[in-house]
Amino acid sequence: MKKKAFKAALPHTLPICIGFLFLGMSYGFLMRSKGFSFVYPMLMSLFIFAGSMEFVTVNLLLSAFNPLYAFFLALMVNARHLFYGISMLEKYKNTGWKKIYLIFGMCDESFSINCTVTPPKDIDKGWFMFFVTLLNQIYWVTGATLGALLGYVIHFDTTGIEFIMTALFVVMFINQWEEHKEHGPALIGLGCSLVCLLLFGADRFILPAMALIILCFTFNGSKLRKETEK
């Protein structure tokens, strides 16, 4: 049963494999170029297992010590998981002990496969989702570790390499922009953050920006609800 589920899960994860290996490697390499041992990216990719937040954490580790800020930033950056969770409440039901791991390893990519793919009837859906999640995590951790190890061997002027994080988010922003006709949410995010950056400065704009974003959506949301009630 396990073998069958693995065979069904593997092809769905292969496209993710390439992306995760490359992005993971660049993350590991970035960590190494900032002077961290390969153990850091290895354990961080294993336990945080949230790509964007891992890139952000490189920055956090290089600035002043502030764990509370790190905690809130992680909450906000990963807030989307809350909603993945809500959509997976039904699907993860009755999967036994695997449920804990399915929740722990619920990254964007695993979520999108588990949410959209229905495995064939003769395959156990719990094991199928388990292998999707596990394989994706293996790709990511392998990439991050390999990238950091590569950093020990390859040496060149890495000034500016941290821009990979900016590049990643800009590309994600464009992808989302083209995926959806409704640009309001993206503009609210960008606008609130820019306004707060100018008002509060680089070191303390994040929390006010988060609050302002939620406030905008509260306002917007109640307006939307009134419209649908009519």
């Binding site: 964007s52 952000v56 906000m76 950056v77 807030a79 989307r80 909603f83 900016t166 988010f169 800009v170 994600m172 922003f173 989302q176 959806h180 949410p185 993206a186 503009l187 609210i188 995010g189 960008l190 606008g191 609130c192 953050s193 820019l194 950056l197 704009f205 994040i206 920006a209 988060m210 974003i213 959506f217």
Partner: peptide, 11 residues
């Protein structure tokens, strides 16, 4: 929120 957070991260 997923759309807004990416804008925040770019900034």
């Amino acid at each position: 929120l997923p759309y807004a957070v990416i804008g925040l991260l770019v900034v």
